[in-house]
């Protein structure tokens, strides 16, 4: 009984480590593979469109709503202390440091990550990847690498857009609706937000999240069992694993950046 459990633990560990190893190898192949600018660049642009531009709408809408909610919630608390002038920094700092990068990464995992897993899983199921290999074209370079880099480029851009829209959303509710002074909204924000400490750290966070989400999404797709159940399972796993990984990495990064 106990030995059985132990054995299962061992088997799971080996499986996990092997999976991580495969993911790392794949990532290495995709990232450090010799890039071919002439053929690679159009592919990158196409993927930037699929991964980045098509995610823009959901990012803008969510950013606006989250900023508005922050403005409303922050106001009701701050007004009790007569400190509604601090609404600007509250909205800006929560978005810049946490919500911008994290929520963008979660939405990105749900929208682009799952789509990538399904797409690559389907390519595998319909033998497109195999046939590319047989045509002596490396699928890591041709399929994985452009998607990976498009994700890594898109995510910080989307996070920045999300944050900016969120701050405007907070302005919309706090200033235009609830009557916080516009001048103090912006000036208190400027007094409390630091370009390096807050803005750049937020962007660094979102670059790290991009690596994590893309690595998970592409690996799950590439490793998917090429059947319809296998792809469905891989897609779900992408969203779950990527979201958890983002939250875990967020804690580590927050501790490193703001904890000390």
């Amino acid at each position: 009984m106990f030995v059985d459990r132990l054995q299962r633990l061992g088997a799971n560990t080996i499986q996990t480590v092997a999976g991580l190893g495969r993911a790392t190898l794949m990532l290495m192949g995709a990232v450090f593979g010799k890039p071919d600018v002439r053929k690679g660049f159009p592919l990158l642009i196409k993927q930037l469109y699929v991964v980045g531009v098509l995610s823009l709408l959901i990012i803008v809408v969510s950013g606006l709503f989250i900023g508005m909610v922050l403005g409303l919630q922050g106001y009701t608390v701050l007004v009790k202390f007569g400190a509604e002038g601090m609404l600007g920094p509250l909205v800006a700092l929560s978005l810049l440091r946490e919500l911008g990068p994290v929520v963008t990464a979660l939405l990105f995992a749900g929208r682009a990550g799952s789509a990538l897993t399904a797409e690559i899983g389907l390519m595998k199921a319909t033998e497109q990847i195999s046939s590319m290999e047989m045509m002596a074209v490396d699928p890591l370079r041709r399929i994985i690498a452009p998607r990976f880099w498009a994700g890594v480029i898109s995510m910080p851009l989307l996070a920045v857009v999300f944050t900016a829209v969120g701050i405007l959303g907070g302005h919309l509710v706090g200033v235009d609706w609830l009557g916080v002074d516009a001048g103090s909204y912006w000036s208190a924000m400027q007094a409390n937000v630091d370009l390096y400490q807050d803005v750049f750290n937020g962007i660094i966070k979102s670059i790290v999240f991009a690596f994590v989400v893309m690595a998970i999404a592409l690996h799950k797709g590439f490793d998917a069992v090429p059947t319809s159940e296998g792809i469905a399972k891989a897609t779900t796993e992408t969203v779950v694993t990527a979201s958890l990984a983002v939250l875990a990495f967020d804690f580590v990064l927050t501790a490193l950046m703001f904890g000390g």
């Binding site: 642009i45 930037l48 469109y49 800006a92 810049l96 937000v193």
Partner: peptide, 27 residues
């Protein structure tokens, strides 16, 4: 069309970054 869309995307992101850097943060 794809290239134009990607160009717009990058321009929007740069605009958003400028807002953050100049209007929100205290440079």
């Amino acid at each position: 069309k794809i290239e134009i869309a990607v160009g717009c995307f990058v321009a929007i992101a740069i605009g958003a970054f400028l807002i953050l850097a100049l209007k929100v943060a205290n440079t």
